[in-house]
Nucleic acid binder design. Sequence first.
RNA 1: GGGCGGAUAGCUCAGCCGGGAGAGCAUCGGCCUUACAAGCCGAGGGUCACAGGUUCGAUCCCUGUUCCGCCUACCA
Length: 889
Amino acid sequence: MSEQKILLNKTYEHGTVEDKWYSFWLENGYFHADENSTKPPFSIVIPPPNITGSLHMGHALNNTLQDILIRWKKMQGFSSLWQPGTDHAGIATQNVVERMLREKGIDRDHLGREKFVEKVWEWKKESGGMIVNQLKKLGAACDWERERFTMDEGLSAAVRRTFVRLHEEGLIYQGNYIINWCPRCHTALSDLEVIYQEKKGALYYVRYPLADGTGSLTVATTRPETMLGDAAVAVNPDDERFASCIGKNLILPLMKREIPVIGDSYVDVKFGAGALKVTPAHDPNDFEIGNRHGLPKLKVMADDGSMNENAGKYSGMERFACRKAVVEDLEKEGLLEKVEDYLHSVGGCYRCHTVVEPTISRQWFVKIKPLAEPAMEAVRSGKIRIIPKNWENTYFEWMENIRDWCISRQIWWGHRIPAWHCGDCREVNVAVETPEKCVKCGGASLTQETDVLDTWFSSALWPFSTLGWPENTQSLKKFYPTSVLVTGFDILFFWVARMIMFGLKLMGDVPFRDVYIHALVRDAEGQKMSKSKGNIIDPLIIMEKFGTDAFRFTLAIMAAQGRDIKLSEDRVEGYRNFANKIWNASRFVLMNMDGFNGRGGTFSLLPGDQRLDLTDRWILSRLNKTAAYVNEMLEEYKFNQASARIYQFVWREFCDWYIELAKGRIFSGGEEPRQTVLAVLAHTLETTLRLLHPFMPFITEEIRGQMLPESGSIMSAAYPQCDREWLDEAAEFEMGLIMEVLGAMRAVRGEMNVPPSAKPLAVLLCPDPARREVLSTKIDYIVQLAGLKAMELKPAGERPAGHASTVVGDIEIFLDIKEFLNLEEERTRLEKELKKTREDVEFFEKKLGNKSFVERAPEEVLAEHREKQENSQAKFERVSRNLAALKAM
RNA sequence: GGGCGGAUAGCUCAGCCGGGAGAGCAUCGGCCUUACAAGCCGAGGGUCACAGGUUCGAUCCCUGUUCCGCCUACCA
């Protein structure tokens, strides 16, 4: 009784409903996936959000789509696992905690490593993982019992095991190479973690005098401060201007060191002054050139971005201050030839945006080529499908040009590299567990490597480490490989590619069958949402305001493949209205359920039941087609098309037509027709709720709970499939006719401004017996929906005086609306209609008169055209006759 | 430099295998018609970016052009 009352509210109030059902699902284990189930598996691992993160639009879209798939598959009878968890996000988290401590006046270095890491864990316990609760708000059907964190003991063991294994196979090595260094975060970064941005800079032309005093060479540089570490100047050996200089020495300005002129074909003759200063310790290309020519690699910068002891009098200066000083000094010495404005892209740290310094450093690397090859093959062979397919190109492009992956980070928060340096023999011991003594010399003075691993190293193991690897667990057997990975393209390389590489290497199988790559959510103007632009739409506020279901539906219906989502509140509001529409349709159905025998039962209906009338057969046919379509579209990850179809069905077909048509049998007529129509209403509504549940989980659960209080959660109900027995082309055709006739009548009323309160008489002239038969059995419906007093159906006859007329094919319709009829307006209206009909006739005549069309077009198309031609011809004749009659008045 | 995508109603976007162009919002007109005014019934609005080609037929397939995004690169 009390439940009934809730539903009687005129508007749907999402607030109370959502929390109630989420806890219900959670408490009753509806999200739990059973690894011992005999049902076929369907599994997804969540792209683990950073523990520092809070829910943004990207997460909302990403997780809505996953939830749709999970709920859909669960209802389809799969043992459906959505594996949740969070990522420790090394640099980002360290930065957050550091900032927090600094506000309290605590310095990280003072605290020391161990204490600091403790603080991070404390922080994580208190405020980390806020996003998990926000995902729950979104309705995410994650199996929270399985929640994992990349720093968990199990996952950490997986990381160590992987490191040791790859090291043993020679795929992990340590070496002195050029890496990207963030002077603010004090750590190395991988190539991917550097964000390049176009910046206005300057190109400085600097003259380097020849040691023999016979002249000078001019080099161009954007980073003059690095000249302090120059080891040579390179020219192209084919460049006649400078070829003779090769082998000579130059005086490095400011430092007064002698450096050689070398020949290297890397140098672009046309760029700058045609000569290149070579700084092997501070530029990746120069590093290569240095190796080719055996040049010394002199570092002139310290880890904090200041100049080091090799920088002479500039030692201790901050790098950009040094740049200024160097330029001034060069100018004083008359060695600065010119300065040009120059637009170039400058790399910044992806976490703190500080300008990154390429620098030589001893780091750990993963040799990537042997891993990339099989990873490309997996996609090439179709073992992994990337959807939409065009991302495959991007994937291959990157994988082909991939360079070794720098995995060591000089921060404290993360998986410490399982390597121990022997103080006695300098041997590096790599092991899963802390070794007691050095494997080489047996010495006991071992100190662990201080570096930690790139966060993505542990993320790359996510699809199997979360399922228990390296233990051979039942979950791993049941759910690996996972079914699909849903993610944004921004982490295709960071994460997706690396999961594929590691999955193949360590599990011997792909981590997922499909990769579905979705769009970016932008603001209404198409701008990327960002804090600095201040155009962020907070999903939580949207959900609060319009309801989670409306929000999710908006994202789903806008998620067309290959196009970004431009989100605006207006759209969400529109789908909030949709939720309300469903609410009210349900309200209508439930209101009339009193005395309905099927209430609480299964509403079972059988095809071919004689009690079903045309409208019943029609809506059931449409319902089953909708179910077929929705399943098909979800199978292809076409969330927008699936949801649009449901929207269309619910609003346009079920509410606008079927419910309106049902009113006749509900409010007047016998008990049997009433029972029948209620059964169809209830069945259609209940099926629609199941169809809609993956998209709008809360409202569907709420309504179905009130319809079928005994039958348990909608989550354990079956997802609707198409039952071909219900498909009824004849019913759809006949309903089409009725809808057309009604449409024509309503159009006349609308155009003539006949208010709904006026109930005119109608006369229909329908010469075709079959069509007349269809209409004759449905006169009541037409009278009701067109707002008529009565309707007369005849095979033929005269145009009644003072009536407005319209034509559907060969059917003439006359409405007695004398008091609203203005002859002038009526004539204009008919003339317009005639003109349009004439154009139709001409269109088809022209086409059918084309010999090659008739010869070559398929029979179906021809038949269709002929039929349309006949219809428009019939219509044309009738409209012109009516127009003539009108003019004669 | 290389690659990918987009251009369709005033706005935001759908459009499957090529067969008379669709939705939502906005606009205009009529309505509190016994589920819903967060609603109902109508109406107007398009050279499917441009130029060629293939085809009986092109918004759709092919080529080129313009404009706009994005990704990527060793742009001293």
